[in-house]
Computed example of a mutant assay.
Amino acid sequence: MLLRDIAHSRAGDKGDISNISVIAYDLKDYALLEKHLTTERVKAHFAGVVQGDVVRYELPHLGALNFVMQHALGGGVTRSLALDAHGKSLSGAMLSITLPERK
């Protein structure tokens, strides 16, 4: 199952930091997100893009996880030579992470 099957995302960027929230469509799927969407998994998914730390903030009452990724935008949106590498593109890429099927 793809992450996009059970969640949507919102993103923002400032300088060289990308901020991506993943929000479960249904609160019952939050536990699955919390278990499988780790900082290590997100950093591995963005290998070659995210050069710094990834910090995860948990918002269980909202059914959301927020990831702050340092050194993720090639020096910043206005400095990067990458095509459309800012937050919104990364949030779409985040939703392609594969999760185990619900039980």
Rank of each mutant, 00 (worst) to 15 (best):
E40G: 13
A64R: 02
L65C: 07
Q51F: 00
S91L: 03
T39E: 15
L95R: 14
G74V: 11
Y30E: 01
K28V: 01
S80C: 03
K35A: 04
L99D: 01
G52I: 05
P100Y: 09
A72K: 14
I17K: 14
S80I: 01
K103G: 08
G15N: 09
D13C: 08
L73K: 10
L3D: 10
G87D: 08
K28Y: 00
A11M: 00
M94H: 08
G75V: 06
I17N: 04
G76P: 07
L95T: 08
A24H: 07
S9V: 00
S21P: 00
R56V: 13
G92D: 09
P60Y: 08
F67D: 11
R10P: 01
T78V: 11
L3Y: 14
V22E: 06
V42Q: 13
K43T: 07
S80Q: 12
I23K: 09
H8T: 12
S96D: 15
H71V: 07
N19W: 09
L62M: 10
S18M: 14
L37W: 11
S9Y: 03
A31F: 02
V42R: 06
V68K: 08
A44D: 12
V77F: 12
V54Y: 14
L27P: 00
D26V: 00
L99V: 02
F46N: 07
E34C: 00
H45G: 04
S96H: 14
E40K: 14
G75H: 04
Q70N: 09
T38Y: 01
Q70R: 10
V42Y: 03
G12R: 01
E34F: 08
